[in-house]
Amino acid sequence: MELLLDNQSLNNSEFYHVVQPIVNLVEKRIHGFEFLLRSKQIQNPEKLFGMAEKNHQLNELDKISVYKIFETVANSKGALDEYQLFINVYPSTMVDPDFLESLKELAAGSNIHPNSIVFEINEAEEILDIEFFKETVVKLKQMGFLISLDDIGKGQANMKNLIEIDPNVAKLDLYFSEDLAFSPKKQDFIYYFHQFLGHHAKIVLEGLEKEEDLQAAKQLGVSYGQGYYLGKPQPLEFYVNGLNDERTK
């Protein structure tokens, strides 16, 4: 089975999103949502994007995802106004001039505030020209959008991008949350990372799945978290209708 996107893909129901909450650990409330693209035809997200890459359609899939999210937000009748919305985008899509122009049109033609949109740089794709990419990031920030860097601590290039790109949000890789309560080394890393970056960007710890690790993160000064313990990927209605997990209240 091959994934072949056409001009009707934007309007059909083949693609949809689930969301996972990002929680303010201090105030014990949902701070925002990460939108995760899904396909009715291809259930596995990794396989979906793998097939899109094989067919040279990653950027097209990215654009469809972004457009659908803007449509969802516009149709939410203000239900998402208080949240930050995290959208995964590949670097090669972000530097596409057509993508930037379409964002201007989307922002101008809707009541969506750009500073509620956080473009999360997809680390599955290498940034080939960091200087050119930084110029694109500056343009997006000037338009009012925010930038997030994902999976920090996963690789050397990732740490370099953290310094060069200067994101608004820094998401620590789930490796650091696993058994955090019992790992002095991970605790030290998060503490010093928070000291290093805490004044420049919001820090989100991913992969929180246990109460003891959540409490350890809070004691280390981590203000935002994401993971199955705080909320699993669900249809947006699950959360905006007030059905979110009691642990996020």
Rank of each mutant, 00 (worst) to 15 (best):
residue 131 E to L: 09
residue 139 K to H: 13
residue 131 E to I: 14
residue 176 F to W: 13
residue 109 G to N: 15
residue 142 Q to G: 00
residue 139 K to T: 03
residue 174 L to I: 12
residue 135 E to A: 08
residue 115 N to C: 09
residue 133 F to W: 06
residue 121 I to V: 15
residue 148 S to I: 03
residue 149 L to K: 01
residue 116 S to V: 02
residue 176 F to C: 12
residue 166 D to W: 03
residue 172 L to R: 05
residue 126 E to G: 00
residue 175 Y to R: 06
residue 126 E to H: 09
residue 110 S to N: 03
residue 157 A to M: 15
residue 177 S to T: 12
residue 153 G to K: 00
residue 121 I to K: 04
residue 136 T to N: 08
residue 156 Q to R: 07
residue 157 A to D: 09
residue 174 L to N: 11
residue 168 N to Q: 10
residue 155 G to Q: 11
residue 170 A to V: 14
residue 138 V to T: 06
residue 166 D to N: 13
residue 148 S to A: 15
residue 141 K to Q: 14
residue 159 M to L: 15
residue 154 K to I: 15
residue 171 K to N: 08
residue 142 Q to A: 10
residue 137 V to H: 00
residue 174 L to E: 12
residue 127 I to L: 09
residue 153 G to R: 01
residue 128 L to I: 06
residue 146 L to D: 01
residue 164 E to S: 14
residue 165 I to F: 04
residue 153 G to E: 03
residue 170 A to W: 00
residue 134 K to C: 13
residue 109 G to S: 12
residue 140 L to K: 07
residue 144 G to H: 07
residue 173 D to S: 11
residue 165 I to G: 05
residue 145 F to A: 04
residue 168 N to T: 04
residue 146 L to C: 10
residue 160 K to Q: 09
residue 141 K to P: 01
residue 159 M to W: 07
residue 161 N to E: 10
residue 140 L to A: 07
residue 146 L to S: 09
residue 146 L to G: 01
residue 135 E to S: 11
residue 121 I to F: 07
residue 171 K to Q: 12
residue 155 G to A: 15
residue 149 L to Y: 04
residue 116 S to E: 02
residue 141 K to L: 04
residue 120 E to I: 14
residue 138 V to E: 05
residue 139 K to I: 10
residue 173 D to N: 06
residue 165 I to Y: 02
residue 119 F to P: 02
residue 119 F to A: 08
residue 134 K to I: 09
residue 163 I to E: 04
residue 126 E to P: 01
residue 123 E to Y: 05
residue 111 N to G: 15
residue 111 N to M: 06
residue 121 I to Y: 08
residue 154 K to S: 14
residue 108 A to V: 02
residue 134 K to V: 11
residue 140 L to F: 14
residue 116 S to Q: 10
residue 171 K to Y: 07
residue 170 A to P: 00
residue 132 F to H: 14
residue 168 N to K: 00
residue 174 L to D: 13
residue 146 L to A: 11
residue 167 P to I: 01
residue 150 D to H: 03
residue 150 D to N: 08
residue 170 A to Q: 07
residue 134 K to A: 14
residue 168 N to S: 11
residue 145 F to N: 01
residue 136 T to I: 05
residue 147 I to H: 06
residue 169 V to F: 10
residue 112 I to E: 09
